[in-house]
Write a protein that binds this DNA or RNA. Structure first.
Length: 624
RNA sequence: GCCCCGAUAGCUCAGCUGGAUAGAGCAGCGGACUUCUAAUCCGCAGGUCGUAGGUUCGAAUCCUACUCGGGGUGCCA
C-alpha cells in the first residue's frame, strides 16, 4: 500500500520517495499488476544506512523470477530521485536487496519548511466523515471508578484524534440511567423521604452507598436456601433465609412497581429520578473536566432517551421477520454467531442489546455517523459483535447515502493492581476515581515542591494538578489499549523515562529556552524565517522525526490507537533532549545563523509536541 | 464444551501490519550540572520473542497444534 492512500498531499519525504520508486518499478517491470507496485519505503533502522530504505526489490523479484539484487540494480538505474535524495548507485543496495536512501539536506529543509504551517502538515481530508464516539458511560447513583478512567480517557483521545484529522466528531455518553437498578434507588429515596429524611443535600457518595444497600436488599439468596434445604437439618438457618428471601422478594416487587410508575411518568418518581440524574451527572462531568476530557452535558445520551424508541424498533424487527420468538424470548440470529441476540425477555422487558440497537439506529440515521466507535471494555466483545451483526441484518447501519456505516468496538483491557489482579481498593471494592486522582495530585505536589521551592503556592498547585493528570492519562494511553495494564503510582509519578511528565518537561524546557532568548535580546520572531540548522546528526534525527508527524497521526486515527501517537511523542521528546544536550542554541559562541536555525527547529519541535499532547488530551505546563 | 484476547530483558512496556545485529523505561553498575531547566543526557550489563511444527530469500510479526493466564458464553448491564 502506498503511504498516500487518502489522496492528501503529505509533506513527509517518504511520500515523494514512494512515488518515485513506484514510477521506477513500473518502468523496470511494465507488466506488474498495479496492486503489486509497492515501494515499501520506511525510515532506516539505523542512521548508518541513511534516512530511508526501500524494501521493494525482494517481493517483486520473487514475482517476476529475478534475483532481488539484480532487480534492485535495475530500479536504482531507472529511478530519478533528483531534488529529494542523494543519487542512488550500486552502493545504495545492501543485504538481500535493500535500497538505502539519504535525503539531500536541502530537501530535508524544504520538507520542514512545508510542514511549518498551522496544520503541521496534517491537511483536511477531501471527504470529511462524521464519526460518533461512544465514551465514558457512567451509571446513575454510582461514582466513577477506575473502569471509567479508560473509557473516558481513551474515548476522548480517539475523538480528539479524529477531530484533529479534520472529521466531524460526535461524542455520546451512553449513561446507564434507566431500568430496575435505578428504580430500586428511586424507591429507596421515596421510602427515606416518607420517613422524614431531608434529601435536599444528598451527595453522589451517599447515593452510591444507597445503591449498594438496595442491591443487596433485593438480591434473593434462593440458591443458598436450596442448598440448605437439600442438606437438611438446619431448621434455624432455613427459617432465617426464608425470611430474608421473602423480604428480598417484597423489595424487588416494590422496585418493579416503582419502575412501572417511573416509566409511566409518575410525578414523584420522575422528580426523584431527575434528582439522582442531576447529582450523578454534576459529579461525573466535573471529573471528566478534571481529566481534561471534552465530555459535557451535551454529549449525554442516556438509556432513558431511547425508552420510546424501543417498542417501535422491536415491532419493526418482528414485522420484517428479522426477530423471531424462541422459548418465549424474542431473538435475532446472525450468521457466524452461535449466541442469539436477545432483544425482548419472556416477561416483555427489553435488554441492553435492544437499547444498543436503538443507539446504532440513532447514531447512523439521526446523527449521520459514517463510523461509530465504541470505546468500551473488552469484556463486551461478544455483545458488540452480536449487536453490530443484528444492526446490519436490520439495515440500521445504513447511512442516508446508502452506505453501511463502519461499526467499531475499540475495546480496552482491565486496569490491574498489585499481583496482576484488577485494581481494587483495600476493602475490595472498585477503586473510586476521585480518590485515585487526588492521590496522584498529592504525590505530584511533593515532587513539584521539591523541584521548585521558590514557586508561589498557587502556581505550584496548578502545575501539580496538570502533571498528575498528564501522568495518569499518559500511562493509560501509552500502552496498546486491548491489553490489560498494571497501574502503578510509583512508575507513573517517578517522573522519569517514558512518562507523561517527561513530555511536559521537554515542552517546558523549550518554552523556557524561548523565554531566555527574549531576555538575551535574541529575536524569536526573526528566527521563524531562518533556515533550519541541519548539519549535526542530532538535528537531522530530530528533523526526520518531526516530518513523520502527519503519517503517525493518520495511522493513529485509522486504528483508533492513541498509543501510537504516545510512542511517537516520546521518541520526539527524547530526540529533542539529545539535541538539547548536543547542540547549544543560546550559549556563547554559537554562530547567529546556527542559533536561529536551531531556534526554528526547537520551535517546530515544540509545536508538534504541544499539538500531539493537545490531540491526546494531555495538559501541558510552561514551567515545572 | 465452544468462542474471544493475551504471552517479548528481573519488573513495566514498544516493535510502524514479513526485513538488516529484537528496542525503550524502571531496577543494577559507572560517568556528565560555575555553561539554554540534571523531572535530563552518555556508557555498561541484561533475550531460546510461551512451546513445537509449517509457509520463504527472510518470522517476535502470517498458518496449525499445544501450554499457561484473562475474559465471555439465552432472558443483568
Amino acid at each position: 500500500m502506498s503511504t498516500n492512500t487518502t489522496n492528501q498531499p503529505t509533506l513527509d519525504p517518504a511520500t515523494a520517495l514512494d512515488d518515485r520508486f513506484c514510477a521506477a518499478i513500473r518502468a523496470v517491470v511494465p507488466d506488474l499488476p498495479d496492486d503489486q507496485v509497492k515501494a515499501h519505503i520506511g525510515p532506516s533502522r539505523q542512521p548508518k544506512f541513511g534516512d530511508f530504505q526501500s524494501n521493494c526489490a525482494m517481493p517483486i523479484a520473487k514475482r517476476v523470477g529475478m534475483k532481488p539484487r539484480d532487480l534492485a540494480a535495475k530500479i536504482v538505474e531507472a529511478i530519478d530521485v533528483s531534488g529529494i535524495a542523494q543519487p542512488l548507485t550500486e552502493e545504495s543496495i545492501a543485504g538481500p536487496g535493500f535500497i538505502n536512501i539519504s535525503l539531500l539536506p536541502k530537501a530535508l529543509g524544504s520538507a520542514l519548511d512545508a510542514m511549518d504551517t498551522d496544520q503541521l502538515g496534517i491537511t483536511p481530508p477531501t471527504a470529511p466523515k462524521t464519526i460518533v464516539v461512544d465514551v465514558c458511560g457512567v451509571n446513575l447513583a454510582k461514582q466513577m471508578h477506575v473502569g471509567h478512567l479508560r473509557s473516558t480517557v481513551i474515548g476522548d483521545a480517539i475523538a480528539r484524534i479524529q477531530e484533529r484529522l479534520g472529521h466531524t466528531v460526535k461524542r455520546q455518553s451512553h449513561v446507564g440511567d434507566w431500568g430496575l437498578p435505578i428504580a430500586m434507588v428511586v424507591e429507596q429515596l421515596c421510602v427515606m423521604e416518607d420517613a422524614g429524611t431531608d434529601l435536599s443535600s444528598v451527595t453522589l457518595a451517599q447515593l452510591n452507598s444507597i445503591y449498594k444497600v438496595v442491591q443487596a436488599k433485593c438480591k434473593a439468596e434462593t440458591k443458598a436456601l436450596e442448598l440448605i434445604t437439600k442438606v437438611g437439618g438446619h431448621i434455624k438457618a432455613e427459617i432465617e433465609l426464608t425470611e430474608r428471601i421473602t423480604d428480598a422478594n417484597a423489595a424487588m416487587e416494590r422496585a418493579k412497581a416503582r419502575l412501572v410508575a417511573l416509566q409511566s411518568g409518575d410525578d414523584r418518581s420522575v422528580k426523584m429520578w431527575q434528582m439522582i440524574y442531576d447529582i450523578t451527572m454534576a459529579a461525573c462531568l466535573a471529573t471528566c473536566q478534571r481529566l481534561h476530557a471534552n465530555i459535557t452535558d451535551e454529549h449525554s445520551a442516556g438509556e432513558s432517551t431511547y425508552r420510546d424508541e424501543l417498542g417501535p424498533l422491536v415491532q419493526d424487527l418482528i414485522d420484517r421477520k428479522i426477530a423471531i420468538e424462541d422459548d418465549g424470548a424474542l431473538v435475532v440470529r446472525c450468521e457466524g454467531i452461535k449466541e442469539p441476540t436477545i432483544i425482548r425477555k419472556r416477561d416483555g422487558g427489553f435488554l441492553y442489546a435492544t437499547t444498543d440497537l436503538a443507539a446504532i439506529k440513532r447514531r447512523v440515521e439521526k446523527l449521520g455517523g459514517d463510523e461509530v466507535v465504541y470505546c468500551v471494555d473488552s469484556r463486551q466483545g461478544l455483545h458488540f459483535k452480536q449487536v453490530f451483526a443484528a444492526a446490519h441484518k436490520a439495515g440500521y447501519d445504513k447511512t442516508p447515502s446508502g452506505k453501511d456505516a463502519i461499526l467499531v468496538h475499540a475495546m480496552f483491557g482491565t486496569v490491574l493492581g498489585e499481583g496482576n489482579k484488577p485494581l481494587k481498593s483495600r476493602s475490595g471494592e472498585n477503586l473510586n476515581l476521585t480518590d485515585l486522582l487526588d492521590e496522584a495530585v498529592a504525590r505530584a505536589s511533593k515532587a513539584v515542591a521539591e523541584k521548585n521551592p521558590d514557586m508561589p503556592e498557587s502556581e505550584r498547585s496548578a502545575i501539580s494538578e496538570a502533571v498528575a493528570m498528564a501522568a495518569i492519562k499518559y500511562a493509560d494511553l501509552s500502552t496498546e489499549r486491548i491489553k490489560d495494564y498494571v497501574f502503578s503510582f510509583d512508575r507513573m509519578l517517578a517522573f522519569e523515562g517514558d512518562t507523561g511528565p517527561y513530555m511536559l518537561y521537554a515542552i517546558a524546557r523549550i518554552k523556557n529556552m524561548l523565554g531566555k532568548a527574549d531576555e538575551k535580546g535574541v529575536s524569536v520572531d526573526a528566527a521563524k524565517d531562518a533556515s533550519f540548522s541541519l548539519d549535526e546528526s542530532a538535528e537531522r534525527a530530530l528533523a526526520l522525526m518531526i516530518l513523520r508527524y502527519p503519517t503517525i497521526m493518520h495511522a493513529t486515527g485509522t486504528h483508533h490507537e492513541p498509543h501510537r501517537l504516545c510512542g511517537y511523542l516520546y521518541e520526539l521528546a527524547s530526540l529533542f533532549a539529545k539535541f538539547y544536550e548536543q547542540c547549544p542554541v543560546l550559549k556563547d559562541g554559537v554562530e547567529e545563523s546556527t542559533r536561529d536555525g536551531r531556534l526554528r527547529l526547537s520551535m517546530l519541535a515544540l509545536r508538534v509536541l504541544q499539538d500531539g499532547c493537545d490531540t491526546l488530551g494531555i495538559p501541558t505546563v510552561d514551567r515545572m
